[in-house]
Amino acid sequence: MSNETLINYAELPCRNLTATKQFFSEVFGWTFTDYGPSYVEFHDKGIVGGFYESDNASLTASGATLLVFYTPELESLQTKIERNGGTIIKPVFEFPGGRRFHFTEPSGNEFAVWSDK
């Protein structure tokens, strides 16, 4: 048995489970497993976690952890996010190592996307 301790699950608040599921399914291809009316688990190539029903949102302005996606096609993904109900809250900016932007999904949670391209 290994002594490794790994982060292997993330849970986020969600104001509208239906809208959030549709957004992540359309934009990122995530799949979901419903566990009752107020919790849904998400599945992705890089992370597994859940959304729980809440009036709160995960925002860096209130000290929340920021989950960051990587893509080689930053502008293309930004367009897809906007077309599916996401809101860009920090437009594309450069930083050492690449470029990124921040967005909120339909339930108001903040995420970022970066690219080294």
Score class of each variant (00 low, 15 high):
residue 1 M to F: 15
residue 1 M to C: 14
residue 2 S to I: 11
residue 2 S to L: 12
residue 2 S to F: 12
residue 3 N to M: 15
residue 3 N to I: 13
residue 3 N to K: 15
residue 3 N to V: 13
residue 4 E to A: 15
residue 6 L to N: 15
residue 6 L to D: 11
residue 6 L to T: 15
residue 7 I to S: 13
residue 7 I to Y: 13
residue 10 A to H: 09
residue 10 A to G: 11
residue 10 A to L: 14
residue 11 E to G: 08
residue 11 E to Q: 12
residue 12 L to E: 01
residue 12 L to I: 07
residue 13 P to L: 01
residue 14 C to E: 04
residue 15 R to A: 07
residue 17 L to A: 00
residue 17 L to P: 01
residue 18 T to L: 04
residue 18 T to A: 09
residue 18 T to R: 06
residue 19 A to W: 01
residue 19 A to N: 00
residue 20 T to S: 10
residue 20 T to P: 05
residue 21 K to C: 09
residue 22 Q to W: 02
residue 23 F to W: 09
residue 24 F to I: 04
residue 24 F to V: 03
residue 24 F to R: 04
residue 26 E to P: 03
residue 26 E to L: 11
residue 26 E to V: 04
residue 27 V to W: 12
residue 28 F to H: 10
residue 28 F to V: 06
residue 29 G to W: 12
residue 29 G to P: 07
residue 29 G to M: 10
residue 30 W to C: 04
residue 33 T to F: 04
residue 34 D to Y: 01
residue 34 D to K: 03
residue 35 Y to Q: 07
residue 36 G to A: 01
residue 37 P to L: 00
residue 37 P to N: 02
residue 39 Y to S: 02
residue 40 V to C: 09
residue 40 V to H: 02
residue 40 V to Y: 03
residue 41 E to M: 13
residue 42 F to W: 08
residue 45 K to D: 15
residue 45 K to P: 10
residue 46 G to A: 15
residue 47 I to R: 09
residue 47 I to P: 04
residue 48 V to Q: 15
residue 49 G to S: 09
residue 51 F to C: 06
residue 51 F to A: 05
residue 52 Y to M: 07
residue 52 Y to W: 08
residue 52 Y to I: 04
residue 52 Y to S: 03
residue 53 E to C: 00
residue 54 S to A: 07
residue 54 S to H: 02
residue 55 D to W: 00
residue 56 N to E: 13
residue 57 A to H: 02
residue 60 T to R: 08
residue 60 T to W: 01
residue 61 A to T: 12
residue 62 S to E: 11
residue 63 G to L: 03
residue 64 A to P: 06
residue 64 A to K: 03
residue 64 A to R: 05
residue 66 L to R: 06
residue 66 L to N: 06
residue 67 L to R: 02
residue 67 L to T: 10
residue 69 F to P: 05
residue 70 Y to Q: 13
residue 70 Y to H: 12
residue 71 T to F: 06
residue 72 P to H: 10
residue 73 E to R: 14
residue 74 L to S: 05
residue 74 L to K: 07
residue 76 S to A: 14
residue 77 L to R: 05
residue 77 L to M: 10
residue 78 Q to G: 05
residue 78 Q to E: 13
residue 79 T to G: 10
residue 79 T to L: 12
residue 79 T to A: 15
residue 80 K to C: 11
residue 81 I to W: 07
residue 81 I to K: 06
residue 81 I to E: 11
residue 81 I to S: 07
residue 83 R to A: 15
residue 85 G to M: 10
residue 85 G to H: 09
residue 85 G to K: 11
residue 86 G to S: 09
residue 89 I to A: 07
residue 89 I to R: 08
residue 90 K to T: 10
residue 93 F to M: 10
residue 93 F to R: 09
residue 94 E to N: 11
residue 94 E to K: 11
residue 99 R to M: 08
residue 100 R to V: 00
residue 100 R to Q: 13
residue 100 R to G: 14
residue 100 R to S: 13
residue 101 F to E: 02
residue 102 H to N: 14
residue 103 F to K: 05
residue 106 P to I: 04
residue 107 S to Q: 03
residue 108 G to C: 04
residue 109 N to V: 02
residue 111 F to K: 01
residue 112 A to C: 01
residue 113 V to R: 03
residue 113 V to T: 09
residue 114 W to T: 12
residue 114 W to Q: 14
residue 115 S to L: 09
residue 115 S to H: 08
residue 116 D to Q: 10
residue 116 D to M: 07
residue 116 D to G: 06
